[in-house]
């Protein structure tokens, strides 16, 4: 198969799904954004003696939620069309729970007396988590739009055999991209968590 693609006589470009490339580009930009913020955070910590920040254990629980959410979406995108809707909904619900959990973590921090302007660590923590949450919210919008497709297609398939999505169907691509975005957000969250954990 590879021989064929490489020995084509004309010099035309290979087909690349534009949505996929668009997501990659978006992820590159988002990565840059988080990377810049994290580097600014590290830069800022250097010239301050005050690094204290309470670390609510709730954060680990939240991380777990996000991991399961990511896993559910991944299963949904690979699984059969019949089971996909349930998994898809569970994944989204877990993500919503994660966001609520983050809000609880914030309130825990606030109760301990750490606000946006208390010290560099706290302000960056609020900023980073807020930004991450916003990205997740954006993801949820895409999730909702995909959900309707999944449910429709799942309904269509539910009477028949357990079939997988056709490999190139648009729903399948949407599911995969959405799941991939979730993994990305999970990775970003883990990096944020580890860095904050280690530096405070």
């Amino acid at each position: 198969m590879s021989a064929q693609t490489f020995t084509e006589a004309n010099g035309s470009h290979p087909e690349l799904p534009a949505t996929k490339l668009a997501l990659w580009l978006f992820l590159a930009v988002a990565t840059m954004l988080f990377a810049m913020l994290l580097s600014a955070y590290l830069v800022r910590l250097g010239f301050s003696e005050e690094h204290a920040l309470p670390k609510p254990n709730l954060l680990w629980f939240n991380t777990l939620l996000l991991v399961f959410s990511s896993l559910a979406l991944e299963r949904a995108s690979r699984g059969t069309a019949r089971r996909a809707p349930a998994l898809w909904l569970v994944g989204g619900a877990l993500a919503v729970l994660f966001l609520i959990g983050q809000l609880f973590a914030w309130s825990e921090l606030a109760q301990a007396g750490y606000f946006l302007a208390t010290n560099p660590a706290s302000s960056f923590f609020y900023l980073l988590t807020a930004l991450h949450g916003m990205h997740l919210l954006g993801g949820l919008v895409a999730w909702t739009r995909t959900a309707s497709c999944v449910i429709q297609e799942g309904r269509g398939e539910s009477r028949g055999e357990a079939v997988r999505f056709a490999p190139a169907s648009s729903t399948r691509v949407k599911l995969e991209l959405c799941a991939f975005y979730w993994h990305f957000l999970l990775a970003v969250w883990v990096v944020i968590l580890i860095l904050v954990w280690m530096t405070t």
Binding site: G11, S12, H13, P14, L16, A18, L21, A22, L25
Partner: peptide, 9 residues
């Protein structure tokens, strides 16, 4: 996007 791909490919 398409234009970039065309040019570079």
């Amino acid at each position: 996007l398409r234009e970039i791909i065309t040019d570079w490919a």
